[in-house]
Nucleic acid binder design. Structure first.
Lengths: 278, 278
DNA sequence: AATGGTGTTCGACGATGCCGAAAGGTTCGC
DNA sequence: GCGAACCTTTCGGCATCGTCGAACACCATT
């Protein structure tokens, strides 16, 4: 690990999270370095347009270069490229917005976003990040990670985003087990009040999870009350819980199609299973 | 300039331009460093998710972290934030796509993109970069740069993108002078065959150019033949050259509105001029 | 099996980046 | 208007840290 590069990367991370504009002193505090050290690093990053300094206030922010890099990443992403075709179909079939995401540390990053096919104004969420534990995409990915990485994910900060976010290891383990059982992750207003998600994992070569694809939309559109209980005299006790079956199937179909395009299931234990399913 | 950080940044730049996946050897060649040096830098960058290594081929590509940073940059960009409101209006009024861009080295970076208001499928160009000399946005920005930076821009590689791209310093100087004269930059199929652009500069505090806003669309929609020549017996000789007046005015209005929101024209020589114009 | 090409590890040399202290500059409060 | 307190920036010596040659392990071809 090269020290100065590591420090530069941490500076970028600090600038990327938190307030958009920071002074040298504030950055130095957050990364725990001396002021002149940070200054030198910033100067170098600035030279490459990765950070920019406000000429008035002297404060620093991320520079235009990072968007350019981000765009290159998206353009070169095989996962994204293979998704384009199938997500379009999925959005049309489901009538809801579709997200494709991949894991980066403890968060998922939205790589592709197909708007809900109606004429309402929607904001593009490509590049947005969500804590993995608070969205269906994240559950779908983490559930199929090797156990070591799964443990690391469970050890990360499990902050609640809404009142419904599951934040205990036990609850998340149960959720992940269920995802593995039914090959589908469901999230009900754990990231945003009112919004739910349905997602399925995407596998790349050697059947390692490469990401996930899923629907994001109003909870009452995506979910239906859980299967009729014996005691129907308490109808208000039933709460929306289960994905509408046709949506769940559509998501799984899309995930399998993308996985196949990515070349999943060659020379791996899971290979034959996936082939049989497709 | 911190050496190792500088080298790391150059590695990122190499990964961002050119083929999406490169091996250590190839990267080492392109940045002119020894293989182990590059390896160490890559390992560090990988640790921060700024690059990712394909587990199969061992080749490296940009990592998910860069999109995350790019997104943060866009979220914190004051230019972009102030543009949202006015670009929407401009797109509706003009019936064409609107871009907001800023300069990064010799290229402009698209910070905001409002789709042409019809139902055709369009791809989002946010994050895309275009050589400054090949687009109206770039002309609008460079024309209002301090002379030193302007000279630097003119000294960059002026590669042609289409058969119509102006690539000589003299031609570009004339173009920039005209931009300054009429406060409007026009480009006719210099970046993409069939597409034209009309752009105006956006000024930030102290009236330094912060970026540009403009229309991008089919040349025959944005431009009209230059003012009627005396000899009308050669109608085919006339070629579309001049922006449709109402579009030009709409672009300038939008640029001025954004500049005002950014706080342009306080305590600077150009301040009174801009105030008088608004 | 041999070969050329990978990506990776090791270690010693010496250049290189780190940080304490002090210097410009600006913005407050008085 | 003045002084003080903050900011960002510069300087220089010490020791650390990064660099690169050579050798390693590995894979796909030949």
């Amino acid at each position: 690990m090269i020290q100065s590069v590591d420090r530069a990367a941490r500076i970028l991370a600090v600038l990327g999270s938190g307030p958009p504009r920071l002074g040298v002193t504030e950055i130095a505090d957050r990364v725990g370095l001396a002021k002149p050290t940070v200054h030198g690093l910033l100067r170098t990053l600035e030279h490459h347009d990765l950070v920019a300094q406000d000429p008035d206030t002297g404060k620093y922010s991320l520079g235009p270069g990072v968007v350019s890099l981000g765009n290159s990443f998206l353009g070169g992403s095989e996962l994204r490229a293979r998704s384009l075709r199938w997500t379009e179909v999925l959005a049309r079939k489901a009538g809801e917005a579709v997200w494709v995401a991949t894991l980066s540390g403890p968060r998922v990053i939205v790589l592709h976003h197909v708007f809900r096919p109606d004429d309402t104004v929607q904001i593009l969420e490509v590049g947005a990040t969500v804590p993995w534990h608070a969205c269906a995409l994240g559950h779908a990915i983490v559930a199929h990670l090797p156990t070591a990485e799964q443990a690391r994910a469970l050890a990360s900060d499990l902050v609640p985003l809404t009142g419904r976010t599951r934040t205990t290891k036990a609850a998340l383990r149960r959720a992940l087990a269920q995802v593995r059982r039914q090959g589908l992750a469901v999230e009900d207003q754990e990231a945003t009040v009112g919004d739910a998600g349905i997602a399925a994992p995407i596998f790349g070569r050697d059947s390692v999870v490469a990401g996930a694809v899923g629907l994001v939309g109003p909870a009452d559109q995506l979910l239906v009350p859980a299967e009729a209980e014996p005691d129907l005299d308490r109808p208000d006790a039933a709460h929306p819980d289960v994905p509408r079956p046709e949506l769940g199937r559509a998501v799984q179909d899309a995930a399998r199609a993308i996985s196949r395009d990515l070349g999943a299931g060659r020379g791996s234990p899971l290979g034959p299973v996936l082939s049989a399913l497709s």
